[in-house]
């Protein structure tokens, strides 16, 4: 209408609503303002982006086939030996809590203080770094803070991971998902059914339960962990039926040098005693 263009008293609304038509609508920059060759989003640009997407998708599928998603053993709240480990992208926060001044009495600094300031500053970056300059080398404070944080994150993650692998080596532990995969492969190679960790095996009966070797087991405190009936307990394997899994030599080796969380017994027991125990344990087979 002619009236809307000239009248300075006439209020113009958007459509049939009561929203007044603004004088400066927020219209994005016209791309003819940008130099060079611009192109339409669909289909021209999206097809190019899709090509990049396909490369990433193939990469993801290759990774999926090469490395199956890990699965350990069913959660056992009584398993005291398990080394807790968060997913890799939380490791830097996890590692941070291990340093003095952000742990123990100062734990608040580690859980709320440092991450709060770091993530808070990141979230409010546009309100802290308000200059017009966009190039990172002209914004030394913002850029150097970000680069320092990146170095800290990479460093903390690496230290955390190295400590974890060190802990694994120290306790001679194989991560459960690898152990499980190995057992499944072994079973497949032997043509057996895949072991099912949900199925509890029937407790094996002891063979020659009054053999003198049992006295050594009591003396060496084996039964405090492996239980008085030798059926094992939370996270500790049963000794009854151990002969099905290990040979006499392997048992002697484990008793002498320890394995996983089991300590070495070469101080407490003589070689002859270890041999006697190993001989008896090797006889512990569920299937005769």
């Amino acid at each position: 209408m002619a009236a809307s263009s000239k009248g300075n008293e006439k209020v113009v609304y958007v459509g049939d609503s009561r929203i007044r038509k603004g004088t400066s609508p927020n219209i994005p920059a016209d791309y003819s303002a940008f130099p060079g060759k611009s192109e339409a989003f669909i289909p021209n640009f999206l097809l190019k982006e899709w090509m990049v997407g396909v490369v990433v998708l193939v990469g993801l599928l290759v990774l999926t086939i090469a490395e199956p998603a890990p699965l350990g053993y069913p959660a056992d709240p009584l398993n005291a030996a398990f080394i807790p480990m968060p997913d890799w992208y939380f490791l830097f926060l996890y590692q941070l809590l291990k340093y003095p001044y952000v742990s123990q009495d100062y734990l608040v600094l580690g859980t709320v203080g440092v991450p709060g300031i770091a993530f808070g500053a990141l979230m409010l970056a546009p309100f802290l770094d308000t200059g017009k300059e966009r190039r990172f080398y002209r914004r030394p404070i913002a850029s150097s803070l970000m680069i320092l944080s990146l170095i800290a994150i990479v460093y903390l993650t690496k230290v955390s991971w190295d400590f974890y692998t060190h802990e694994l080596r120290l306790t001679n532990t194989i991560p459960e998902h690898k152990l499980r995969e190995e057992k499944a492969r072994e079973a497949a190679e032997k043509g057996q059914e895949r072991p099912n960790p949900m199925k509890k095996e029937k407790p094996a009966a002891l063979v020659d339960a009054d053999d003198p070797a049992t006295a050594i087991l009591k003396k060496a405190q084996c039964i405090t962990c492996h239980a008085a009936d030798l059926q094992g307990q939370a996270g500790i394997p049963a000794l009854a039926g151990v002969g099905d899994r290990l040979t006499k030599e392997e048992i002697a080796e484990i008793v002498t040098n320890g394995r996983n969380n089991m300590p070495s017994f070469k101080e407490q027991l003589s070689t002859a005693e270890i041999d006697q125990v190993a001989t008896w344990l090797a006889k512990q087979k569920a299937v005769q």
């Binding site: 350990g72 709240p77 807790p84 480990m85 459960e176």
Partner: peptide
């Protein structure tokens, strides 16, 4: 719901 999940 494996050990890794539970303890983490």
């Amino acid at each position: 719901w494996d050990n890794k999940a539970y303890y983490a």
